[in-house]
Amino acid sequence: MAPRPDPGIRPPVPFGQFIVKVHGRCNLACRYCYLYEGPDRTWRARPAAAAPAVLDRTADRIAEHAAAHGLHNVALVLHGGEPLLAGADRLAALSDRVRARVSDACTVHTTVQTNATLLTDARVATLARHGIRVGVSLDGGLVSHNTLRTDHAGRPSWPAASRGARLLADRYPDAYAGILTVVDPRTDPVEMYESLLGLRPPALDLLLPHGNWTNPPPGVPDAGTPGAGPGPARPTPYGDWLSVVFDRWWQAGRRETRVRLFEECLALLLGLPAATESLGLDPVDAIVVETDGTIEQVDSLKSAYDAAAATGLDVFRHSFDDALRHPGVVARQSGAGALAAACRSCPLLTVCGGGHYAHRYRAGSGFANPSVYCADLDRFVRHVAGRLAAATAGAPR
């Protein structure tokens, strides 16, 4: 008699997002950067740019994985460092190569994530012509928000970055993917949000800074020890900030822009599927290829400790199916089973999902903890739930 499958173990979810480090260095020297200023040092031993052989083999591996799992959509994210240091033509060539090698039934959605300082009309035209959309990373929509984003000589990046963002909005709106901003509770939330609206992004990603119990995020100087829940006295600077921005977005009367965190929180509260690393229980489906062809887990893990994202695999000797079997990836795909007991018993479990995996880390106990943002997430999710309940009260059933 064949053994029954363990109901607590779900089959691996194939990767649908391939983050390729086409260039491993950055033209900026942001003082808070977790990648270059954090505990991980693996980038130092890697080549600055991915060699043609690495990119060619990566394209083969992506096509192989898509065919093996019958994928109809694949996200190709061209990343760094600053990917435009590799040149727009090289990015376009990689995107074309992946599209040429997957089957006709599979659509490749390519984006490049950039600090926007190297965007020019010619470069954006090349990217747009090859169907590559552009996501921009900024600290806010005003020069005062971006004082920590300087180049290696200490010169401000804002003039070039704002020109790049406005070029997208004015001349290439179809290639404009949106803006990614890390939440800073020291800023005025409404001013920050409205300043970003001034750059006319079609979408905003509001991300919590990568911190954990061992290295707390800014504004949470004493994270303490992971406990049974948010706790009544714990300050919630990030939850408060997000709640204020949510109200400004929610009460606008029209959708001025998409805010992924807000839309996915609402979807999860309504019992709908949503996919984000920050909320929910959906398994992670992203994998990284470094400039030397090394296959790694997502970069955010590098904020925990040196080599936290390592798998020991590479595109020359291993398939992405091999990466699916890596213990770290398995843990990321284990849903509620991989969460701390306090998370599994929390009434917000299906919405919060334990928060971002990297934010659960604590030296000595690994990632089996609630998020260091537990109290902030509790504050934010309950606030959104309250607004949703008020809006749907009396609605026809």
Rank of each mutant, 00 (worst) to 15 (best):
Gly271Gln: 09
Ala304Thr: 15
His210Thr: 11
Val108Ile: 10
Trp213Ser: 06
Ala275Cys: 03
Gly227Lys: 07
Ala385Pro: 01
Ala153Ile: 02
Leu71Gln: 14
Ala105Cys: 05
Ala45Val: 03
Gly211Lys: 02
Leu313Tyr: 02
Leu377Arg: 00
Leu118Ile: 03
Val384Tyr: 09
Val136Asp: 01
Ala395Glu: 11
Gly178Trp: 00
Arg97Thr: 06
Ala50Tyr: 11
Pro217Cys: 07
Gly354Pro: 10
Cys343Phe: 02
Tyr172Glu: 04
Gly253Cys: 07
Arg25Cys: 05
Gly354Asp: 04
Asp285Thr: 14
Asn212Val: 12
Arg171Phe: 07
Cys106Pro: 10
Val102Ser: 06
Pro283Gly: 07
Tyr176His: 07
Ala307His: 14
Ala67Ile: 00
Leu199Met: 11
Ala336Asn: 02
Gly239Lys: 04
Val220Phe: 09
Asp104Ser: 13
Pro347Phe: 10
Ala375Gly: 15
Ala128Gln: 03
Val381Trp: 01
Ser319Trp: 08
Asp321Gln: 14
Ala310Met: 04
Arg255Cys: 00
Ala175Phe: 05
Asp314Cys: 04
Ala50Ser: 14
Ile62Pro: 13
Val143Asn: 12
Asp322Ser: 03
Phe316His: 10
Arg362His: 12
Asn146Met: 11
Ala66Asn: 09
Phe15Leu: 02
Thr42His: 14
Leu71Ser: 11
Leu324Thr: 03
Met192Tyr: 00
Ala53Leu: 11
Arg260Ala: 13
Gly280Met: 04
Asp299Trp: 05
Glu37Leu: 05
Lys21Glu: 10
Gly328Arg: 05
Ala160Cys: 02
His79Ser: 10
Glu82Asp: 14
Cys346Ala: 04
Asp139His: 12
Val54His: 00
Leu279Gly: 02
Gly224Thr: 08
Ala375Trp: 08
Thr42Ser: 15
Ile19His: 05
Ala86Phe: 12
Cys26Met: 00
Asp174Ser: 09
Leu324Ser: 06
Ala375Phe: 08
Gly38Ser: 13
Ile19Arg: 01
Ala203Leu: 15
Leu279Ser: 03
His326Pro: 11
Val54Leu: 02
Leu281Asn: 13
Ala59Phe: 02
Ala49Lys: 13
Cys30Met: 12
Arg61Asn: 00
Leu76Tyr: 02
Gly8Leu: 13
Val74Pro: 08
Ser371Leu: 06
Phe246Met: 04
Leu76Cys: 04
Leu78Glu: 04
Ala160Val: 00
Val20Arg: 01
Tyr305Arg: 15
Ser144Met: 05
Ala252Gly: 07
